[in-house]
Write a protein that binds this DNA or RNA. Structure first.
Length: 594
RNA sequence: GGGGUUGUAGUUAAGUUGGUUAUAACGCCGGCCUGUCACGCCGGAGGCCGCGGGUUCGAGUCCCGUCAACCCCGCCA
């Protein structure tokens, strides 16, 4: 029998009594009752679920009797009856009735490992093992369809509207141990040598600028061998672009245009542009985060000077060591119970805080374990500083600036969640600018790049602080954050060999290391590289926003587990010794699975 | 590397202060039913209680270890 896919069921729904229909698709028997078989014939491609009743001949029934659950079949028949009106919109069985002449079982299904409609209650371990069945579920189908649509919109925007040039860069490339851990690929032809999978196409796109492709775009797969999170997979997709002769403002405008169009054309949300700009310093001071969530207040207040005058020893000690005392005022927060405060203290400890002081302002004054260390005058000062009114609560963190910002930045988000201040129908973008060029790495005992080593430093800062305090050098780097999540980051790049060399020196790379790791880049810069810059956006994270999900696995067809394995294919797995021999590799005995 | 949650039929769960043969629903298998739509009725099968130790007369239950999934810290230029 010739058959057609069920996405022509749209036509079936329009069909009249007496019309001949031929269709095929996944079906589920609802009931097998005498000569009538009740079938859900689902159209996965079009996402409309067509449920109808088939009356089948004795021959066809014999065939149908063998099939029970999730199967694929083709039927030809006649529309016998249509019920008027929509009796049950959720289960419109019988709305269309087909009298079946022939029924061909294209492929039976064995009993399903779980009932597909129960997806939301089934352990994710099982769904990942049977991901091909999980993907039959309407929600994942819709997610991936929107992803496809979003990718189309983005590609169109850049290549048609903005005249960007799409170029593919290598997947087998050179290891650059700066930054994330590389995934390595052994070379067969060059014994003992390894390729790396790209952490990003960063250097290739810069080289394309040197080549004269003034506007580059790639929707690029990137690989980082670091531990996973709810919003982090070891391979992920980046919207990667680079422009020559550009300034940050030009890039901001292009990206704002992309987001506005993407949000409008996918979820019909108007995103106001331009996005606000905020320096890194301001973001840290006010929100304790370089990706502040601007949907609510609860800003951090520096109270170090007031705390220093109190008689509480720890405050004084922290400040003497160059630390900070900062506070968050929670309006109406005096209704927090002792247990709430204990929970919040535990929460604070996650980020390294040693404890958490708090003050409730009641009508008769402060209620607080630390009230006695503050004179009446100091209490007034503090009330004014943080806006502590009757009925409010203040939470303190006293520690190094890093711990204070980390703790209060996260506590701020947690408080907003608890008090229902987070509106997930609102999308607040913000550009964060002027990142520090370097961060000190305690583990490596040296300065490390905040973004990457190719970021253009603020040249005045470089001149002034390179010797004395590299931590004070700002860079021409920027992130775009959405509702407290970093969704992209970029910079103007170094296009001059001498500046690049200087930065490598500050990163304590020897001349030999510079040559072996980045010789090709240094050569490229020496041939008249144009000023250039760009940005990379996390496509998966953007999809998470469009689809309002907290799990990146909901926006990726075949995701990895937290241990970076694939439960469906059982990757990674052992390989034949002969394969290893070809690669000149031997696995340490200690690493062999038992 | 560290902290937390979870792990019992195919699935989702219950399982008391440690005590007979480990429950239920859905699913599955067999039978009945020509208008169901969470159909109904009768019958049945299905368990290394994640795995390994230990305590105990006795462990699904207590202790130690371990594995896996998820969340988080570190990490993610």
């Amino acid at each position: 029998m010739d058959w057609v896919r069920t996405h022509y069921c749209g036509d079936l729904r329009a069909a009249n009594v007496g019309d001949k229909v031929i269709l095929a698709g996944w079906c589920q028997t609802r009931r097998d009752h005498g000569g009538v078989i009740f079938v859900d014939l689902r159209d996965y491609t079009g996402i409309t679920q067509v449920v109808f009743k088939m009356e089948i001949s004795a021959d066809a029934h014999q065939e149908a009797d063998r099939i029970r659950n999730e199967f694929v079949l083709a039927v030809s028949g006649t529309v016998a009856h249509r019920l008027e009106g929509n009796i049950n919109p959720k289960l419109p069985t019988g709305e269309i009735e087909v009298l079946v002449d022939t029924l061909e079982l294209l492929n039976p299904s064995q009993t399903l490992p779980y009932q597909l409609e129960d997806r939301d209650e089934v352990d994710e371990k099982i769904r990942l093992t049977y991901r091909f069945l999980d993907l039959r579920h309407e929600s994942l189908q819709q997610n991936l369809m929107l992803r496809s649509q979003a990718m189309q919109i983005v590609r169109n925007y850049f290549t048609s509207e903005q005249r960007f040039f799409e170029v593919e860069t290598p997947i087998l490339t050179k290891s650059t141990p700066e930054g994330a851990r590389d995934y390595l690929v052994p070379s067969r032809v060059s014994p003992g040598m390894f390729y790396a999978l790209p952490q990003s196409p960063q250097l290739f796109k810069q080289l394309l600028m040197v080549s004269g492709f003034d506007r580059y775009i790639q929707i690029a797969r990137c690989f980082r061998d670091e531990d996973l999170r709810g919003n982090r997979q070891p391979e992920f997709t980046q919207i990667d672009l680079e422009l020559s002769f550009t300034r940050p403002e030009e890039i901001f405008g292009i990206i704002e245009g992309m987001f506005a169009r993407l949000f409008r054309e996918t979820i019909e949300v108007e995103v106001p542009t331009p996005f606000p700009r905020m320096s890194y310093q301001e973001a840290m001071d006010r929100f304790g985060s370089d990706a502040p969530d601007l949907r609510f207040g609860l800003e951090l207040q520096d109270v170090s000077d007031i705390a220093a005058q109190s008689e509480l020893k720890v405050f004084g000690e922290v400040i003497a060591k160059g630390g900070l005392v900062k506070a968050i005022c929670v309006p109406g927060g005096s209704d927090f119970s002792r247990k709430d405060l204990d929970d919040l203290t535990d929460f604070a400890r996650i980020y390294g805080a040693k404890g958490m002081a708090w003050i409730k302002r009641n009508p008769d004054g402060w209620q607080s374990p630390i009230a006695k260390f503050f004179s009446a005058e100091l209490q007034d000062q503090l009330n004014d500083r943080v806006g502590l009114n009757v009925g409010d609560l203040v939470l303190f963190c006293a520690d190094t600036p890093k711990v204070v910002h980390d703790t209060l930045g996260n506590l701020r988000k947690e408080l907003a969640r608890r008090r229902g201040l987070v509106d997930d129908s609102v999308y607040k973008f913000v550009w964060i600018t002027d990142f520090p060029l370097f961060e000190y790495s305690e583990t490596d005992q040296r300065w490390a790049s905040t973004h990457h080593p190719f970021t253009m430093p603020n040249l005045d800062d470089l001149k002034q602080h390179a010797e004395s305090d590299p931590g004070k050098i700002r860079s021409v780097a920027y992130d775009v954050a959405l509702n407290g999540v970093e969704v992209g980051g970029g910079s103007i790049r170094i296009h001059r060999q001498d500046i690049q060399n200087r930065v490598f020196q500050l990163l304590q790379l020897s001349d030999e290391e510079i040559e072996t790791k980045f010789g090709f880049l240094m050569r490229a810069l020496s041939y008249g590289a144009p000023p250039h810059g760009g940005i990379a956006l996390g496509f998966d994270r953007i999809m998470m926003f469009l689809l309002k999900t907290d799990s990146i696995r909901d926006v990726i067809a075949f995701p990895k587990t937290q241990r970076a394995s694939c439960l469906m294919t059982d990757a990674p797995s052992e390989v034949e010794t002969s394969q290893l021999d070809e690669l000149h590799i031997r696995v340490k005995a200690s690493a062999q699975a038992s």
